Amino acid sequence: MVGVSYDTDLEEARDVIRTAVESSGTTDDRKPVDIFACEFNSSSIDFKLRWWSGSAQRDMHESRDLVIRAVKRALDDANIEIPFPYVTHTFKEAIPVAAQAE
């Protein structure tokens, strides 16, 4: 899963992610890379990624590591935000704030 901010062009994000996964050097290029927009999350629109790699357990871990790093780098390079959850706190009463001396 990878989330992008709500103001992201989803077609662009999908293209950036697909290119990153396919160029990670760890996927079986004879089988498709699947990228599905699957959820409106609290602070992101989430994509589910699926790809084929080697069948040994270590292959799976190495492949996931390389794909995650490639996707993160590609989204950063494309200035596509991977958001984190925002929290807004509300209080019943006003909270005093002391002025700071300049």
Rank of each mutant, 00 (worst) to 15 (best):
87 V>A: 10
26 T>K: 10
59 D>Q: 08
21 V>N: 00
23 S>C: 15
30 R>D: 09
63 S>I: 00
15 D>A: 11
55 S>V: 11
56 A>K: 12
23 S>T: 12
31 K>T: 14
12 E>W: 08
82 I>L: 15
96 P>S: 00
61 H>K: 00
41 N>G: 11
1 M>H: 11
35 I>S: 05
54 G>T: 06
96 P>H: 05
69 R>F: 04
16 V>Y: 11
31 K>C: 09
16 V>G: 03
80 I>G: 03
1 M>K: 14
34 D>W: 08
59 D>I: 03
9 D>H: 08
57 Q>Y: 01
80 I>D: 08
86 Y>T: 15
30 R>K: 05
40 F>M: 14
75 L>T: 00
86 Y>R: 11
47 F>Y: 07
43 S>P: 06
98 A>R: 05
95 I>E: 07
93 E>N: 13
35 I>W: 03
72 K>Q: 12
65 D>I: 04
73 R>A: 13
46 D>H: 11
57 Q>S: 15
20 A>D: 12
22 E>T: 06
86 Y>F: 04
102 E>K: 15
69 R>A: 13
16 V>T: 06
55 S>I: 12
42 S>E: 14
14 R>F: 01
57 Q>C: 10
73 R>C: 12
2 V>Q: 02
86 Y>H: 10
78 A>K: 05
23 S>A: 10
17 I>D: 05
101 A>P: 02
9 D>W: 07
39 E>A: 08
66 L>C: 13
45 I>K: 03
72 K>H: 04
42 S>L: 12
54 G>Y: 07
102 E>V: 11
47 F>K: 00
76 D>L: 12
83 P>W: 00
9 D>K: 04
56 A>I: 05
8 T>M: 12
76 D>R: 04
8 T>K: 15
60 M>L: 09
11 E>Y: 02
18 R>Y: 02
83 P>D: 01
25 G>L: 00
69 R>P: 10
6 Y>H: 02
11 E>R: 04
81 E>Q: 13
30 R>E: 11
92 K>F: 09
81 E>P: 06
99 A>E: 14
36 F>M: 15
65 D>S: 12
81 E>A: 06
47 F>R: 00
19 T>L: 04
60 M>R: 10
75 L>M: 01
98 A>W: 14
77 D>I: 06
32 P>L: 05
4 V>W: 00
57 Q>E: 03
92 K>T: 12
12 E>M: 13
26 T>D: 09
45 I>F: 04
49 L>C: 11
90 T>E: 12
4 V>Q: 02
34 D>Y: 08
63 S>A: 13
1 M>L: 13
39 E>M: 11
12 E>D: 13
41 N>F: 14
48 K>C: 02
94 A>L: 10
48 K>M: 11
7 D>G: 06
41 N>T: 09
85 P>N: 09
30 R>N: 15
29 D>R: 10
2 V>K: 07
67 V>D: 05
20 A>Q: 10
